[in-house]
Nucleic acid binder design. Structure first.
Lengths: 196, 196
DNA sequence: CAGGGGTGAGAACGAGCGTTCTCGCCCCTG
DNA sequence: CAGGGGCGAGAACGCTCGTTCTCACCCCTG
């Protein structure tokens, strides 16, 4: 029954491409069928409803997005490089040809007011990203207040890149991040008193 | 024919409340009629189509949003206070009970991939906000690069406040903004060599 | 080879929605 | 007072879409 898994993946691939590119409500199940080659009957056996497909799409996207970020960050070892690598990853993301912002922000805007589950997915995704940033900040020996500041820069860059259609916001966010890191170091300098 | 204008305003008020609160596609013209008390026939005489109503809603919201911001900023005279007042304004906005993020970001996420006009409205709105920030930055004698950095902070705060449902992002953005202003002043200090 | 259980393609169904039409009512003019 | 033109309420229409059903087909077992 690997057939089953393959169809599931095809369906989710198509759903992701369509939902992300055109918005969720603008995409019918017929469009998912046409794009995936998975018949309606099978679609409804794999996912009990469109809402289930949407939530699955969001779950998978969250996982993959965070994996891609971590993979990029893990190419660096120096804590400060790792912090800034987040913004490099944003830059390459923004350069993808059909970049259209954060799927979770978009879904939240479209359905957050009407579907509690979608709103929850968005909250969880952002929370996970913030937690990840917090760990990087702590590894750098920087104060925790920096986390939210960097998070806001990243978040702002994500939506600004989408709306303006350019990747420059990643660079602006990166410079701002460097300035903030430096500012925080000046008030509570180098720090590392590890291994007491 | 003040009747005409009154109905128009009622319709736009209801449309704004509904579109902003539930998303655009989740709100039918019937809902606008019920909430506004303006009959369907009249609605369609006032606005040739739902899309026209949506665009009008966005135009009006852009105008009012920027007016409210300017009014708040104009309560201050010192250039640096005016800059930071932007984030205070965000804070009071986030505290509104049915705050649900930026109507333009939400509309862009929902319809930007499918309606060029909606995408355009979002672009224009963000551009206008950025221009406004740029003027404040220039009035403070600060370097232009600061503009995009503050813009990203504001933008990030707007969506983060929506998704987390708290107003704290405004405070985080404000502190980050203060740090960035200070950082920029250290590299190219006080400046004002006005009136040569 | 017979038969049946699952499959795919597409029709069908029912609800929702954008838009228009009908019809009775009211007010305004001659 | 007579008549008509615009108005509101809501029905109606046509389309889309989520979901299910039909039916012919294929493959697999006895």
């Amino acid at each position: 029954m690997a057939e089953h898994e393959a169809a599931r993946e095809q369906a989710l691939d198509a759903a992701e491409r369509l939902f992300y590119g055109r918005g969720i409500q603008a995409v019918g199940m017929d469009a998912v069928r046409d794009a995936s080659g998975v018949s309606l009957k099978r679609l409804y056996r794999l996912f009990p409803s469109k809402e289930a497909l949407v939530l699955q799409f969001l779950r998978r996207r969250d996982e993959r997005w965070r994996q891609a970020l971590a993979r990029h960050v893990d190419a660096y070892t120096a804590p400060d490089d790792r912090l800034l690598a987040v913004f490099d990853r944003l830059h390459t993301w923004f350069c993808e040809p059909d970049y259209r912002g954060c799927a979770f922000v978009n879904s939240f805007g479209e359905l957050g007011g009407v579907s509690a589950e979608v709103a929850d997915q968005a909250r969880r995704h952002k929370q996970a990203f913030r937690d990840y940033l917090a760990a990087l900040v702590e590894d750098s020996g920087l104060p925790a207040e920096l986390t939210d500041q960097l998070f806001l820069l990243a978040e702002g860059a994500i939506t600004t890149a989408a709306i303006t259609g350019t990747a420059a916001p990643a660079l602006h966010a990166r410079t701002a991040a460097r300035l903030l890191v430096r500012a925080h170091r000046q008030h509570a300098p180098a720090v590392p008193d590890s291994v007491p």
